[in-house]
Simulated scan of single mutants.
Amino acid sequence: MLIQLAIMGLLVALIPLTLTWVSNDVNKYRKLVWVTLFLTFDLIMFGAFTRLTDSGLGCPDWPGCYGHSNPLLAHEHISAAQEAMPTGPVTVAKAWIEMIHRYLAMAVGVLIITLMVIAWRRWIKSRHIEIKFRPWFPSALFLFVCLQGAFGAWTVTMKLQPIIVTIHLLLGLTLLAMLAWLGAQQNEHVPVSALGRALAWPALIGMLLLVVQIALGGWVSTNYAALACNDFPLCHGTVIPQMDFENGFTLWRHLGKTADGEYLPFPALTAIHWVHRSFAFVVIAYVAWLAHKALKDAGLRKTGRWLLIVIALQLVTGLSTIYLNWPLAIAVMHNGGAALLLLLLVMLNYKARYAPLAEGKTARISVLRAGENTAPTI
């Protein structure tokens, strides 16, 4: 079974590997980094779809499905479970959703291994001269994707325990951020002014605030608290509703239960939702201010513009989940928007710290030339 699963992951990975190989890009390594990032973003989106469709236990064992490498071979077991509980966690559709998510994850693992091998070979071949092929970061990515795989296994074996699922989500987004940083290292960047360089620390603060908000959003999702407040801007008709913070933010407990094993009270779900909603305004205000500052610098302007667009879309999708009673497509988009915001803030942090510093007339000429010759970036 393990060999069959490895083959499935390799077959999925062959598609982006082939597209990279036949592309016209001279720097295949840079191309592969960005292709891997794109597939990781897709994996995060599909992971959100898996979670939001309650498919996390579509195959209740790991890494296969009832001991098989695909749901076709496990059809008898899946059908029996679905017949016994038609609306339960195991159905044919949910099994396929869960296994496709695992195949995508394995493909990302294959791509990261490929990046690590290429980096080591180029680093040794260049006799440790080519800085862009330093293998330490790709090797760290490999170790990190192994850790992510372990939490993926625990997500299933520990029956969707909220803290495990939330950490699994955060690790996936951290992997995306690391790939974005590696991609930024491969690109050429438009020089930034002293004003842009001064945004290095504010950009780091903005990214940390977003990480806190993503963690809160993950806690909402893994506890199924998205509709705990179904009105806006009030919650249950009041600014500060009845809430149970103690049970809501007890981290080590089973899904839907308190630490004592009792059913989780509704005020606990309200507390989870309300904190995420309230902190969102802090993040929106700060990121909008940060993007406004970035617009004033030629090297950061494009990233700042995209930040404003995505933060606006994120607000719209967040409100739509409440007003439209949590439609699946919009909920998935909201998860994807958070990942895209993180990616943009990683790029802003990199550019503010490591992009060339513009100085005087010569720098203005270099800015124009860089804008003509640089590969499209965000």
Rank of each mutant, 00 (worst) to 15 (best):
A228T: 04
C229L: 15
C229Y: 11
N230P: 07
F232C: 10
Q242S: 14
M243F: 01
E246S: 07
N247A: 10
G248C: 07
G248K: 03
F249E: 06
T250V: 02
T250W: 08
L251R: 12
W252S: 10
R253E: 02
R253H: 01
G256Q: 00
G256C: 03
K257E: 05
A259H: 12
A259I: 09
A259K: 10
Y263H: 13
L264S: 01
P265H: 06
F266H: 07
F266W: 06
F266D: 07
A268R: 07
A268M: 08
A268S: 15
A268L: 10
A271G: 03
A271V: 01
I272C: 06
H273D: 07
W274R: 09
R277A: 11
R277W: 07
R277P: 06
R277N: 09
R277H: 13
R277F: 07
F279P: 03
F281P: 04
F281K: 01
V282M: 10
V283W: 03
V283Y: 02
I284L: 01
V287L: 00
W289D: 03
W289M: 08
W289N: 03
A291I: 04
A291D: 03
A294M: 15
A294I: 13
L295E: 01
K296S: 09
D297L: 12
A298D: 01
G299R: 01
R301V: 13
R301E: 12
K302V: 08
R305I: 12
W306P: 01
W306S: 07
W306E: 14
L307Y: 05
I311R: 10
I311Q: 11
A312F: 14
L313K: 05
L313R: 06
L315K: 06
T317S: 15
T317W: 12
G318K: 00
L319S: 03
L319A: 05
L319H: 00
T321A: 14
T321Q: 15
T321E: 14
I322W: 12
L324A: 12
P327A: 13
P327S: 11
L328Y: 02
A329F: 11
A329V: 10
A329D: 11
I330A: 08
A331Q: 04
V332P: 00
N335Q: 13
G336D: 02
G336S: 06
G336R: 01
L340Q: 05
L342M: 13
L343P: 07
L344P: 01
V346D: 05
L348M: 14
Y350M: 11
K351D: 03
A352K: 07
R353M: 07
A355F: 04
A355M: 02
A355N: 00
L357I: 11
